[in-house]
Amino acid sequence: MTDPSSWLPDTAPGATPLERVFGLRPDLYDPFRDFYSLFWTRGLLDPVVLELCRLRVAQLVGNESEQRVRYRPALDAGLDEDQVAALRSWPHAAAFTDAQRAALSFAEQFVIDPHGIDNELRDQVADHFTVPGLVALCEVLALFEGFCRFRTILDVPAPPSVTIVAGPMPDAALT
């Protein structure tokens, strides 16, 4: 089967565009999903912080697909569209807590130039989230950026409009 928007000449069966592309390698897709979902299912970070960082990374990378998805756990934890709308101007917006600002500041520097991350920036994150939280943030940012680029370069299509999905799985865009 060929997905209409992917440049790969064949794709796997699947309910979503990412399943049809990444699903060509279920031996890798399954452990990827297990890894990715841990950050939500095991509560490694606040779901709102995860969502804000995921969306900000998607903005910086320029991936429309990720930007059109909202994970239900983040909405249940208090994320609203006013925050999402303010995300591009978060340094000047009143919609964010100090903890969210620390995470967003770290996320931006991680994507733009991780060499600019210094003790002060690490400490700001650890003050709010502890050192294990800082590590979790680094790991999930690595996934957010890497797989935003994966979606972009392989042309994994975006949902037609903002879509709320039940779980944190990256393949849930069109479910």
Binding site: V21, F110, C138, E145
Partner: peptide, 21 residues
């Protein structure tokens, strides 16, 4: 190509972690 691309995604992300930490 999926394997290679997933690999590059991980190489990038985890090299940035090594830099950031």
């Amino acid at each position: 190509l999926v394997e290679l691309t997933a690999g590059v995604a991980l190489f990038l992300g985890f090299s940035k972690i090594a830099v950031a930490l």
